[in-house]
Design a protein around this nucleic acid. Structure first.
Lengths: 163, 163
DNA sequence: AAAATATTGACAGCATGCTGTCAAACTGGT
DNA sequence: ACCAGTTTGACAGCATGCTGTCAATATTTT
């Protein structure tokens, strides 16, 4: 049988680097937010509320997350008094979620921490390099996204050929 | 109060791209493994077993994960018959975990799927670009890692100055 | 207007990461 | 040889992502 070798192709190496960087950035986010008793996920959602009033389903779509993932976080934020639900006159299913002044304070505190970290880190990093990587990731990402989609489509066509 | 604007600095953009790419790669991994009834996490651990016999704590260290995260997956793999624990003569605490022939089959099946996906994707992607990004991520990652560590060290020095 | 379809939030449950605590076993310094 | 500290796996519990189902409500189609 095949020796089950450790993958060493360019795509695997690329993936490993992305995973590693993802871990570092998540850790950074957690460090920033944990000093304020929050988390990266809370920060993300709270940030959306900062841009204006939203429904949970809307935020989830914006963030590319499952509706229920955001729902749980929104519930938690509300329970902690960082956000409030309000009835939505035009749609009795949905509640509108709004940031409270306490939530805004927390968000601002996180922002200050983030700005500090950002500023410090940028003294050690090359701005153009970050931009270059971001652009390249964006391009590669679009290709991969397309291939994932076409793969899923093909698979469906094969497995559910009728209709 | 500050308007809580949407962050638009280079570091944030960079982070967003990394998160997005991470999501795409994770989704690819899940697609590959789900057709075999596995998951990316299982694949990772199973892959380590393919390189040789290990203890759980060892694998966790290698992968940069918490010991108990790997432990749960290893237990699951064992329960499914893809791996077995064996007593370790030299250390009565630890069990040695080994891939079974069934596990090797599964791993190989995943590998075939992955190789297909990899090969297809590489017809759409620029190899040099992937390598360039990987290198750049590696460099940036080392800087960020160092800054995270020095930040944590500083923080500890401030909060726990004695001893 | 009525019927079919889609969306939303509540509820429940899974996977994977994390942490903390504990007892057993190993290791190293004296 | 002993004692202090470390490592390991078991167990329990949390956070965040996911999914699926359901009833209430919008929305679209006919």
């Amino acid at each position: 049988m095949k020796p089950l070798q450790k993958p060493n192709d360019p795509l695997s190496n690329f993936s490993l680097q992305v995973f590693h960087m993802n871990g570092l950035l998540m850790r950074s986010g957690d460090i920033i937010t944990s000093s304020i008793g929050q988390s990266s996920a809370r920060w993300q959602v709270l940030g959306r509320l900062g841009h204006g009033t939203q429904t949970v389903a809307n935020i989830a779509r914006d963030m590319g997350l499952a509706r229920q993932s955001v729902q749980r976080i929104a519930d938690a934020l509300t329970k902690e008094g960082l956000a409030v639900y309000q009835d939505h006159a035009a749609d009795r299913r949905t509640k509108i979620i709004t940031i409270t002044s306490k939530g805004a304070e927390v968000l601002n505190a996180i922002y200050v921490q983030y700005a500090q970290w950002n500023q410090h880190l940028m003294t050690k990093l090359n701005l153009e390099q970050l931009e270059t990587i971001a652009d390249a990731l964006n391009k590669v990402g679009r290709v991969i996204e397309e291939e994932i989609n076409s793969y899923l489509t093909d698979k469906n066509n094969v497995e559910v050929p009728n209709e």
